[in-house]
Amino acid sequence: MGSKNSRNYSEDFKKMVVELYHSGQSVSSLSSEYGVSEVTIYKWIKAFTPVAGEENQLTPHDIAAIQKENLKMKQEIEILKKAMAIFARK
Results as ranks from 00 to 15, higher is better:
35 G>V: 07
38 E>V: 03
73 M>E: 02
26 S>E: 14
38 E>H: 02
39 V>I: 08
27 V>A: 02
89 R>L: 15
64 A>C: 14
25 Q>I: 13
38 E>G: 05
24 G>T: 07
55 E>F: 05
14 K>F: 11
30 L>R: 09
26 S>Q: 13
80 L>M: 14
49 T>A: 11
45 I>H: 07
88 A>V: 12
64 A>D: 15
20 L>P: 01
58 L>I: 03
84 M>R: 08
18 V>Q: 01
44 W>T: 02
46 K>Q: 09
83 A>V: 14
58 L>A: 08
22 H>D: 09
18 V>I: 04
88 A>I: 11
56 N>S: 14
45 I>W: 07
79 I>D: 05
34 Y>I: 12
13 F>L: 09
48 F>C: 12
80 L>F: 06
8 N>A: 00
27 V>R: 03
23 S>I: 13
3 S>A: 13
65 A>V: 06
29 S>Q: 05
23 S>L: 14
68 K>P: 05
28 S>N: 02
33 E>D: 01
33 E>A: 01
58 L>Y: 07
26 S>N: 12
14 K>E: 14
86 I>W: 13
10 S>A: 11
33 E>H: 01
18 V>N: 02
12 D>N: 11
5 N>F: 01
11 E>T: 13
61 H>P: 01
62 D>M: 08
47 A>T: 02
28 S>A: 02
73 M>V: 03
59 T>G: 13
50 P>C: 10
69 E>P: 08
53 G>A: 08
77 I>R: 04
17 V>Y: 09
21 Y>F: 08
24 G>I: 10
74 K>L: 03
16 M>I: 11
50 P>Q: 12
26 S>I: 12
25 Q>E: 15
60 P>V: 10
43 K>G: 07
22 H>P: 03
46 K>N: 07
39 V>A: 08
88 A>H: 14
35 G>T: 05
37 S>W: 03
26 S>M: 13
51 V>H: 09
2 G>K: 08
5 N>T: 01
57 Q>C: 06
3 S>Y: 12
53 G>I: 11
29 S>R: 01
1 M>R: 09
1 M>D: 13
81 K>P: 05
22 H>Q: 10
17 V>M: 10
32 S>M: 14
90 K>I: 15
45 I>Y: 07
37 S>E: 06
7 R>P: 00
21 Y>M: 04
20 L>H: 02
76 E>V: 13
31 S>K: 10
3 S>R: 12
86 I>Y: 12
5 N>W: 01
75 Q>F: 06
52 A>V: 14
36 V>C: 02
43 K>M: 08
78 E>K: 06
52 A>H: 11
66 I>V: 10
27 V>G: 00
87 F>E: 04
44 W>A: 02
38 E>I: 02
21 Y>Q: 08
79 I>T: 10
13 F>V: 06
64 A>Q: 15
